[in-house]
Design a protein around this nucleic acid. Structure first.
Length: 867
RNA sequence: GGGCGCGUAGCUCAGUUGGUUAGAGCGCCUGCUUCACACGCAGGAGGUCACAGGUUCGAGUCCUGUCGCGCCCACCA
């Protein structure tokens, strides 16, 4: 049995996306108590693109899941997730590419059909629930008829919220994207700081030669002005009560009103009021009973109300209006002005605030309940610095516009009556208006914001509103893992909807990880073209290496910068693991040991006592860090243990002890037991390589079903003795390196030992350090030539030639450093406050450190004298 | 305008409640094609932890301020 020389992930790792699709894997007993998990990626009705950030989600949740599973928390489940959905889309796209086709060419329906075909193939139970929900969406261009049988959750949620008065229809100012031709919620609007202009326009006061000067960033809206406002407390305009101004270009008289909306300190203190095109003005307009004149339409062109400018694009109209004002001498000045421009998150088009009739969710009562859940600790954010952000948003939340004028999505289950104009909201397609009985009813053409159905995700996937076994077993879920970028879009809304509709929180803990950024630390986005395709890096470095990199980089509260160097070193780690296994298998063959992972033998040899002690400490820390979602620490700790303890020292010593034909000795038992424990510790992070090795060592059940190592005994004596051995070996190597010698050249020397240091196992020391030593006790009498000293020993080597200058330099530098440290310690030890204030063990430590430093300095001096 | 976070070795970043001579990976220098691994081994150089104060016996870690950077939220003409 021999392994391939290098780690070749492609040989045994399933393709990441493929495996991802199948990853609703851990269906243990659904009715046993214990933690439950959910993944965090928007469902596929949001046809997003897959990027490396999704792989982070998936890696973190999968790692957590495997760990719990191995610890014996046997009710792990991945409900309500659609990583699989998105991964499937990618696979379909790839298979299309192989056929030379694109998604667009085959059309939406065919694409969706293929996606479901893939999902069926994997028989994923979650995705089949997804299918039910997906089928209720309209994927065709013809406005569809909602099939109530297939959309229980969305339909039911809408109707219940409507009945409770939490959904209403109203006419308000909404964000309108002229390109997408739909209303947008506040969250879908991005503000971009822009350098624009502030136009100052003169409005002539009727019956006088006075002008009122108003400033605006959007001159085209002036056509819809129905008043100008001044602050009631502004002394400059007290005499204008009851007067009017003439709206330039339109030659319409409009009143001067007194309203707090005008800030006397800003500009001239006069504001134009355009109720149809500005939310503040709309409010002011309502207070003063002003007309709403809509001069810009849904298509971003000027309406008939815009008189001579009707039909012009809004920006073309702006140019003309400014020019015309200038011609008439009504443009006082133009000054540069920085303000936030609102753009559509999806397409970047400048959003137009328009008065329009839309459906809204009344969020305040829902937000209150969600905030209470966090306050009472029923939902916990990890790390908890997200609390503040969460509360800040929730406290200032505005009603959520949920209707969209798109051609696909869940259609709103509301019917308008042609007779009485009232609305019928129903679970079944109604035959007549419930208010007047008229059959002249028509379904509302709008569809729901995709985030509406997403917010139901934690329970809609489990069969809600039916009282299913799944729902009882898996709701609420234990842990929600996601990037912070969708805290508001999704997490907060799941909390609100979950609590409102089921009476319980959707999840107990939310772990928020960072975002993956490009090497310039910019957020990855398709429009910027700086996305890294996870499939590419997966193919290049391997799934496990990607996971390891992501986890090592994902310190809580920080973002990840995409960095190929780190990715590469993660792959090198995998190779190291692979090759250590290779060493074991090769030697097992020559020793006549079967490929198996036995229980440990007697712990007698120093390296065995030491490595098991280190293993215990590692296991303890790793378990603790996994519990606290400190995955980067886990990865770091396991890296350190394996590479620098296990490979660098333990394996090197064990290689000295193994011999051909020995059979399963005590050395082999311990070696294999440590390796076995390590594979299990590492499995949640590196599932594929560990699984593969597990089987190559003769196991025939999955390592995912094995026991996760827990805290064991530590052996401080062994750790101290090992430290000493390492120091001695290192001293020998350094002596050689200092004098320009190859470290494998064998040299003779004398080792002077004190304080029990002579207990060291000489043959091991000699072979690792490539030296031949005579051991004496006590201090070296006179230190001449090549020597390395510690408080425990002096190592003197017979060198062909000693670089005395280099030695002297090193000793002087070292002494200097030590003296500075002693100075610092003396400062503390000399202070009464320190001696009284510091804990005794700290004082003791400092004292013994000081003694060590003094001794080292003395050694250095002696050596210098000897030179 | 409000909120969050960052500034630690040439680069990318760790550093949980303040307490060994501040760490890792990459890069760099020196020596090694040693029979697990050159995706490697041994050794080394490199940091006044952005700056200025403060609290403390003790500060990369806590407080205040300054400078530089990033992100989120926000209807002020």
């Amino acid at each position: 049995m021999e392994l391939e020389k290098a780690y070749e992930p492609q040989r045994f790792e399933p393709h990441w996306a493929e495996w991802w699709v199948a990853s609703g894997i851990f269906h243990a007993d659904p009715h046993a108590p214990g933690p439950r998990f959910s993944l965090a990626v928007p469902p596929p009705n949001v046809t997003g693109s897959l990027h490396i950030g999704h792989m982070l989600d998936h890696t973190v949740i999968d790692t957590a899941t495997r760990w719990h599973r191995m610890r014996g928390d046997n009710t792990l489940f991945l409900p309500g997730t659609d990583h699989a959905g998105i991964a499937t889309q990618m696979l379909v796209e790839r298979s299309l590419a192989a056929e030379g086709l694109t998604r667009r060419e085959i059309g939406r329906e065919e694409f969706v059909r293929r996606v479901w075909e893939w999902k069926e193939k994997y028989g994923n139970r979650i995705t089949s629930q997804m299918k039910r929900i997906g089928d209720s969406c309209d994927w065709s261009r013809e406005r569809f008829t909602l099939n109530p049988d297939l959309s229980h959750a969305v339909l039911e949620a809408f109707v219940r919220l409507y009945e409770r008065g939490l959904i209403y229809r109203g006419t308000y100012m909404v964000n309108w994207c002229p390109r997408c031709s739909t209303a947008l919620s506040d969250l879908e609007v991005k503000h971009e700081d822009t350098q624009g202009s502030l136009w100052h326009i003169r409005y002539p006061v009727n019956g006088s030669s006075r002008y009122l000067v108003v400033a605006t960033t959007r001159p085209e809206t002036m056509l819809g002005d129905t008043a100008v406002a001044v602050n009631p407390a502004d002394p400059r305009y007290q005499d204008l009560a009851g007067q009017t101004v003439t709206l330039p270009l339109m030659n319409r008289p409009i009143p001067i009103i007194f309203d707090e909306i005008a800030d006397p300190k800003f500009g001239t203190g006069v504001v134009k009021i355009t109720p149809a095109h500005d939310p503040n003005d709309l409010e002011a307009g309502k207070r003063h009973d002003l007309a709403q004149i809509k001069v810009i339409g849904e298509d971003a062109r000027m309406t008939a109300e815009a008189g001579p400018y009707a039909g012009l694009d809004r920006f073309e109209a702006r140019k003309r209006i400014v020019a015309d004002l200038e011609k008439e001498g009504l443009l006082e000045k133009v000054e540069p002005y920085a303000f936030a421009l609102s753009k559509c998150d999806r397409c970047g088009t400048i959003v137009e605030p328009l008065i329009s009739t839309q459906w809204f969710v009344k969020t305040k009562p829902l937000a209150d309940k969600a905030m209470a859940a966090v306050n009472e600790g029923r939902i916990q954010f990890v790390p908890d610095n997200w609390n503040r952000t969460f509360f800040n948003w929730m406290e200032n939340i505005r009603d959520w516009c949920i209707s969209r004028q798109l051609w696909w999505g869940h259609r709103i289950p509301a019917w308008h009556c042609g007779n009485c104009n009232k609305i019928t909201v129903a679970r079944e397609i109604p035959k007549a208006c419930t208010h007047c009985g008229s059959a002249a009813i028509e379904q509302d053409p709008d569809v729901l914001d995709t985030w509406f159905s997403s917010s139901l995700w934690p329970f809609s996937t489990l069969g809600w509103p039916a009282d299913t076994d799944d729902l009882r077993a898996y709701y609420p879920t234990t842990l929600m893992i996601t990037g912070f970028d969708i805290l508001f879009f999704w997490v907060a809304r799941m909390m609100m909807m979950g609590i409102e509709l089921t009476g319980d929180v959707p999840f107990r803990q939310v772990h928020m990880h960072g975002l993956v950024r490009d090497p310039e630390r910019k957020k990855m986005s398709k429009t910027k073209g700086n996305v890294v395709d996870p499939l590419d890096i997966n193919e290049k470095y391997g799934t496990d290496a990607c996971r390891l990199w992501l986890l090592m980089a994902a310190a809580p509260g920080t973002d990840i910068t995409y960095n190929e160097d780190k990715l590469n070193s993660a792959r090198q780690f995998c190779n190291k693991l692979w090759n250590a296994a290779r060493l074991l298998l090769m030697n097992m063959e020559s020793s006549g040991v079967e490929s198996s992972l036995p229980e440990p033998g007697q712990l007698e040899a120093l390296e065995d006592r030491w490595i098991f002690s280190r293993l215990s400490r590692t296991a303890e820390k790793v378990n603790r860090d996994l519990e606290q979602h400190r995955y980067h620490e886990v990865a770091e700790e396991l890296w350190q243990f394996f590479w620098h303890d296990f490979c660098d020292w333990y394996l090197e010593i064990k290689k000295l002890r193994l011999s051909p034909g020995s059979g399963l000795t005590n050395d082999w038992r311990n070696l294999l037991a440590v390796f076995s424990a390590y594979l299990r510790l590492q499995h949640p992070i590196l599932p594929f390589i560990t699984e593969e090795l597990w089987h190559r060592f003769g196991q025939n059940t999955s390592i995912a079903l094995a026991r996760y190592p827990q805290v064991g005994a530590t052996d401080e004596t062994a750790e101290r003795e090992m430290d000493l051995l390492q120091d001695m070996v290192t001293a020998a190597r350094k002596l050689k390196a200092d004098n320009g010698l190859d470290d494998k050249m064998e040299l003779a020397g004398v080792l002077y030992c004190r304080n029990g240091a002579s207990k060291v196992e000489l043959p091991v020391l000699e072979r690792l350090g490539k030296v031949k030593l005579e051991v004496r006790t006590g201090a070296a009498p006179v230190l001449t030539g090549a020597v390395r000293s510690t408080t425990y020993f002096d190592l003197l080597l017979q060198l062909p030639e000693v670089d005395r200058d280099a030695l002297r330099e090193r000793l002087v530098k070292d002494t200097d450093k030590l003296q500075k440290l002693i100075l610092k310690i003396d400062g503390q030890l000399g202070s009464e406050k320190f001696l009284n204030g510091a804990p005794p063990h700290i004082v003791d430590e400092l004292r013994s450190k000081r003694a060590d430093y003094i001794a080292q300095i003395q050694k250095n001096r002696d050596t210098l004298d000897g030179l």
